[in-house]
């Protein structure tokens, strides 16, 4: 077990080169911001911030000039906490936290909160969208040794037992509200299903006759589209074929066939013998024969 621990580690090393009131920028373009839980905390975490810059991404939720990319946000910083922390650099339009950096997740139909799977409560990366581009620069030039404070008197952050109790009481959902959510989702779902069916029907109708009078002939009744092929069905058909073939073959008909089976038997015994021998060798090597 070997790792190094710097006892006096509440300062980034590159800090020494800079004057005290300067921002600390590390190679790679990230600015180091320090963060502490409360004003009397001894240890600090370090956030690494940079303007969000991605070539491929064309996303409306992360406008390139106004989005700050933040690494290493501790688990007790929820979106609202992060918003509060960064509003000192300018008003924040939105905050998005995720487990890994990357393009935002395309979620399907919008789900009610209670139906979403629980989030992992680990360290997060954040995308903070400011109202104005100038806030990015402000954040990036924030002096290193002036830590952001998570929990202050104005904005207390609950952790530990307090948080769990809060979490517990928030986990309740009134049955009638739940019923409403379900109903609205199912209505929505049915509507989508209907639309889908409608679309398919139209597609099929479209195929009925093209401009030149050709008709594409498909299997099944009129209107119903053939079921999608499934992998399992394919496999089953192949197997059926194979079985049919093997049934037709005659075993033990010719002398050579008989001889072959005998030969196979001996080969089988030999193989087993060799296998056993190896197993024994293995066990001997592991000293499995010492009775006591």
């Amino acid at each position: 077990m070997s790792f190094r621990l710097k006892r006096s580690h509440n300062m980034a090393p590159s800090k020494k080169k800079h004057a005290t009131k300067e921002a600390c920028v590390i190679p790679g373009g990230f600015t180091v911001l320090s963060l502490q839980f409360s004003s009397d905390s001894a240890a600090r975490h370090f956030l690494y911030v940079k303007e969000h810059k991605v070539r491929a991404e064309k996303s409306s939720v992360r406008p390139l000039d106004r989005t700050l990319f933040v690494l290493n946000i501790p688990p007790y910083c929820s979106e609202s906490v992060v918003k509060g922390l960064f509003s000192q650099f300018g008003s924040v339009a939105s905050v998005e936290l995720s487990d890994h950096p990357g393009s935002p997740q395309e979620s399907g139909p919008k789900l009610s909160k209670v139906f979403r799977p629980a989030d992992k409560q680990g360290f997060k990366v954040g995308y903070i969208v400011f109202e104005s581009p100038s806030s990015i620069a402000a954040a990036k030039s924030h002096p290193h040794n002036d830590p952001l404070v998570v929990s202050t008197e104005q904005r207390p952050v609950k952790t530990g037992v307090q948080k769990w109790i809060q979490q517990y009481s928030k986990s309740f959902i009134r049955p009638d509200k739940l019923q409403l959510t379900v109903d609205s989702f199912m209505q929505d779902y049915d509507k989508r299903k209907e639309e889908e069916a409608e679309r398919q029907r139209q597609e099929v109708e479209k195929q009925q006759e093209d401009e030149e009078g050709w008709v594409k002939v498909t299997r099944g009744h009129k209107g119903a589209k053939a079921r999608p092929h499934s992998e399992a069905a394919n496999k089953r058909t192949l197997q059926r074929e194979k079985r049919k073939k093997s049934r037709k073959e005659l075993m033990n008909f010719y002398t050579w066939q008989h001889r072959n089976t005998q030969k196979e038997h001996i080969a089988e015994l030999r193989k087993k013998f060799e296998e056993d021998k190896q197993r024994i060798a293995l066990m001997r090597a592991q000293r499995k024969f010492k009775p006591y």
């Binding site: 790792f3 590390i26 790679g28 240890a43 600090r44 975490h45 688990p75 007790y76 952790t159 530990g160």
Partner: peptide
């Protein structure tokens, strides 16, 4: 070259913070 190592002091502090009361 930038190397990273776990920020042990902060982690130990987090153990305390996250389990406040417990």
């Amino acid at each position: 070259e930038v190397k990273t190592i776990p920020n042990i002091e902060a982690i130990l502090e987090d153990f305390r913070v996250m389990g406040k009361g417990l």
